[in-house]
Write a protein that binds this DNA or RNA. Structure first.
Length: 844
RNA sequence: GCGGGUGUGGCGGAAUGGUAGACGCCGGGGACUUAAAAUCCCCUGAUCCUAUAGAUCGUGUGGGUUCGAGUCCCACCACCCGCACCA
């Protein structure tokens, strides 16, 4: 293609994001471009990114997350869908209370001002959001409906209250989540955490364990990783529950997944907090041992190295088949809250039992072997947990592991001493939090009537505003008047529940409220039916288990009690990677921010003194490592489109994206390069450029495929290629088509630039409302292809041949090549493999 | 310990079993300019070489299947993530 002299462009000026960004953001807002119309006849598409916690400022992780969703939303709109792409705020939670304590601001005021600031930031990036549906979970309208849903669940038996052990921080006077306990101490107060039994509210997620597990199978468009994590979390296991008769006359129920190894059992072990152990605690030695078990650390490293410890109770258990008397130990490795809190020890075929038996010199018998001849083979230095054939086990001898399992379960059931059982790792969801900044749990404690739900017409139970955080503990608990009320049943004096709901509750149904927000109900089932399930849900992998499991549970629970007919909330899930940045280190652990450092290709120096700075690993942007880049500064310098383009370029979206200054500069250069190209659109040009036209049509298809696969990095590469081809081409109608194609293809990615250029070309409509360009199928196929010719497995030459050329012709062309002949050097040709339109491989 | 993932130039990464390194960044050279910025053009995996040509090597390591392997199979190594004494 001859290089042509530069055409005087329509605009010699540069694209100026500082004026264009705002202009088009206002234009979209005024036109209501992104307001979802649920009455539309178009097919519906609900695109959702995990809503943010209003911590104060938008960070690069948000920008990446929302840019991906935005491209999908805008693309779907161009493809003729009615798109719902909402945004809101996960606004309850501890940081607001911490801010209240530290900065003496009300959590509500702090949260509201953060929301205002972050909303403005999001708007500056030009996201195609339907702001008419915005809400914050701390709005009484929102949490009031949540209270109503909670009461509905209560009425259906999905909510209950029981005593439960919690981590109690005696200084802050509050319950701590497990992840807030660091080395046995409260993360804020540093105080030794106590175990306390408190009355707590629970949601019966375990009722749905089977459904939640089976449902994973239908989630074909979820990452395998997330499905596996949930599967493991739910932790279904099948086995036998049966009881040993104890020498003291009591019965000891145990649970095992390996009933096939029952003849190898040589002891029983119970948890330190097992009722039998507790009953023996009058003995000071036993009480001491129980205390020792409780002190055991819970960190990974401690568990890894923790020695198996036991205390022989002196009680014996009678083996159900052999009648042998086996010692019963209290053991530190048995958990009270799994199974029955007691196990039968089979040292030969369980590693923990093996270690324990070794330490306490208990018999280690082989009951599974590779084949019956190996029945007397000595055990090695560890338990054999693999498959095999049962040996040394009376009537089980010769059976496979699976056959033996079934046999023992059948005998236990017919003999009436045991039962095949399913045990789950999943626990019921404790949702009580002794905190202020959450949804008040809508119950009243009446001295006469016990626990009474707040009548629905009295909802929402709102939070009082006049609270102080000067003293530790729950402000609702010590508020002068708030908790005092009357019993809805008997009218007598009563107290409100002062616990609030876990904030994960708020995010368990927000997607339903986005889809439909009537005043008098949490949602309208008809609207839910129109929009749900979410077609693309995008967010961080850190929510793989809790949030996503709870949201699935709420959807199923609400569906179960007849609210609507949706089983799974998120048809497809995408977990995006983090935004990372180099770290800079000066001296010992003096982290430096990128602004303090001069980075060149061969190192980094301190801006102030020029001293050398150590360039550290590329890790997730975090305040502690100071490797944070603020999106605001970047947008101010380069505009929204360059940042959006950066977020989509280079790294595949599921992987981490390393931020770099040179990268964003490259993106900005490309924005300007496109602007110049758009300026070269020449309405007067005529003539055909088939090569370029073909490239444009191919790009239309390829970019669409890439966006639908969320392979934004590949879509970006294709746009670069088409851009380069259009730049090099001389004026023609085809070139105009190519330029307009580029403009449409970048519409979802760089919307401000696209709108501006569209307008400069004289269009009065918005590119956001435009249709995705049509492609001509005839132009997708090349009429000439490049054929690779290999000899001895290596490329020797390439030839150009008409598409669809006959095998014989290709072979002849290949052999006619001078380079091929030189490589062949007269050798005898044994075989020629011809792959049509691809290659010819000559075997000698 | 269990489960999962990843490994390709200086960097981020492309590649239905069929031309490895598309595209971007970095780097080098040049044009334009009084100069700079901006922009444009060319080069850019390594080694050898008789150097516009050609050869060899090259996708974590070692094997295998195949006319042909980054891609499939087996074994191993490294790093990352999740869960964790779950009976």
């Amino acid at each position: 293609m001859p290089k042509h002299a530069s055409i005087p462009s329509m605009t010699e000026t540069r694209f100026d994001p500082s004026s264009a960004d705002g202009r088009w953001q206002r234009a979209w807002a005024q036109a209501g471009t992104f307001i979802a119309d649920s009455d539309s006849e178009k097919p519906k598409s609900y695109i959702l990114e995990m809503f943010p916690y209003p911590s104060g400022r938008i960070h690069m992780g948000h920008v990446r997350n929302y840019t991906m969703g935005d491209v999908l939303a805008r693309y779907k709109k161009m493809r003729g869908y009615e798109v719902l792409h909402p945004m809101g705020w996960d606004a309850f939670g501890m940081p607001a209370e911490n801010a209240a304590m530290e900065k003496k601001v009300h959590p509500g005021a702090w949260t509201r001002s953060n929301i205002e600031a972050m909303k403005e930031q999001l708007q500056r990036i030009g996201f195609a959001l339907d702001w008419t549906r915005e809400f914050a979970t701390c709005d009484p309208e929102y949490y009031g409906h949540e209270q109503a849903l909670f009461l509905d669940m209560y009425a259906s038996g999905l909510v209950y209250r029981r005593q439960s052990e919690v981590n109690w921080d005696p200084v802050d006077m509050t319950v701590l989540a497990n992840e807030q306990v660091i080395d046995g101490k409260g993360w804020r107060s540093g105080a030794e955490v106590e175990k306390r039994k408190l009355d707590q509210w629970f949601l019966k997620i375990t009722d749905f364990a089977d459904e939640l597990l089976d449902g994973l199978g239908e989630l074909k468009d979820w990452p395998d990783k997330v499905r596996l994590m949930q599967e493991n979390w739910i932790g279904k296991s099948q086995g036998l529950e049966f009881s040993f008769d104890l020498s003291n006359g009591a019965k000891l129920p145990v649970y095992t997944t390996r009933p096939d190894t029952i003849f190898g059992s040589s002891f029983c072990a119970i948890a330190a907090d097992h009722p039998i152990a507790q009953g023996l605690a009058r003995d000071p030695a036993i009480a001491g041992f129980i205390e020792e078990c409780k002190r055991g650390g819970t960190t990974a490293a401690e568990l890894e190295t923790a020695e198996k410890l036991g205390f022989d109770t002196g009680i014996t258990a009678k083996h159900p088949f052999t009648g042998a008397a086996m010692p019963v130990f209290i053991a530190n490795f048995v958990l009270m809250d799994y199974g029955t809190g007691a196990v039968m020890g089979v040292p030969g075929h369980d590693q923990r039992d093996f270690e324990f038996a070794t330490k306490y010199a208990l018999p280690i018998a082989r009951v599974v072997a590779a084949d019956p001849a190996q029945a007397d083979a000595p055990m090695g230095g560890e338990a054999e947990v693999g498959d095999g054939v049962i040996v040394n086990s009376d009537f089980l001898d010769g059976k496979s592991v699976d056959e033996a399992k079934a046999d023992v379960i059948t005998r236990a059931e017919t003999g009436g001493w045991g039962q095949g059982t399913t045990v789950w790792r999943l626990r019921d969801w404790g949702i009580s939090r002794q905190r202020y900044w959450g949804t008040p749990i809508p119950f009243i404690h009446c001295p006469k009537c016990d626990i009474v739900p707040v009548p629905k017409d009295q909802l929402p139970v709102t939070l009082p505003d006049d609270v102080d955080f000067e003293t530790p503990g729950n402000p609702l608990e010590r508020h002068a008047t708030w908790k005092h009320t009357t019993c809805p049943k008997c009218g007598g004096a009563a107290e409100r529940e002062t616990d609030t709901l876990d904030t994960f509750t708020n995010s368990s149904w927000y997607f339903l409220r986005f889809a439909s927000q009537p005043d008098d109900a949490p949602f309208d089932p008809e609207e839910i039916a129109k929009w749900m399930p979410v077609q693309h849900y995008i967010g961080g992998i850190e929510h793989a288990i809790l949030h996503l499991l709870y949201a699935r549970f709420w959807t199923r629970a609400l569906s179960h009690i007849g609210k609507f007919d949706v089983k799974e909330p998120f048809a497809a899930l995408f977990t995006q990677g983090m935004v990372t940045h180099e770290t800079y280190n000066f001296g010992d652990n003096n982290w430096l921010s990128p602004e303090e450092v001069n980075r060149t290709s061969d190192g980094a120096t301190l801006k102030t003194t020029g001293e050398a700075v150590t360039v550290g690993r590329v890790v997730k942007m975090s305040k502690s490592k100071k490797n944070v880049v603020d999106p605001d500064n970047i947008i101010a310098n380069y505009g929204a489109d360059a940042v959006r383009w950066f977020m989509l370029s280079d790294s595949p979206p599921e992987r981490d994206l390393p931020w770099s200054d040179s990268g964003i500069e490259g993106c900005y250069r490309f924005v300007q390069r496109l602007w110049r190209l758009f300026g070269q659109y020449d309405a007067a040009a005529s003539g055909e450029d088939k090569t370029l036209a073909r490239k444009a049509h191919q790009a239309i298809v390829a970019v669409a495929e890439d966006i639908e696969a969320l392979s934004f990095n590949k879509a970006v590469a294709r746009i670069y290629e088409l851009t380069a081809a259009a730049e090099k081409a001389g004026p023609s109608e085809s070139r105009n088509f190519a330029i307009r194609t580029v403009l449409h293809l970048i519409g979802p990615m760089m919307p401000h630039l696209a709108e501006e250029a569209f307008a400069v070309m004289g269009e009065s409509s918005l590119i956001a409302d435009a249709a995705w360009p049509q492609h001509d199928p005839a132009l997708l196929v090349e009429d000439e292809v490049t054929i690779a010719i290999q000899h001895k497995g290596k490329l020797r030459d390439t030839i150009t041949a008409p598409k669809g050329a006959a095998k014989e012709d290709l072979e002849a062309l290949a052999l006619a090549s001078e380079k091929v002949q030189r490589s062949l050097d007269g050798a005898e040709i044994r075989k020629v493999i011809v792959v049509p339109d691809r290659l010819v491989n000559i075997v000698t």
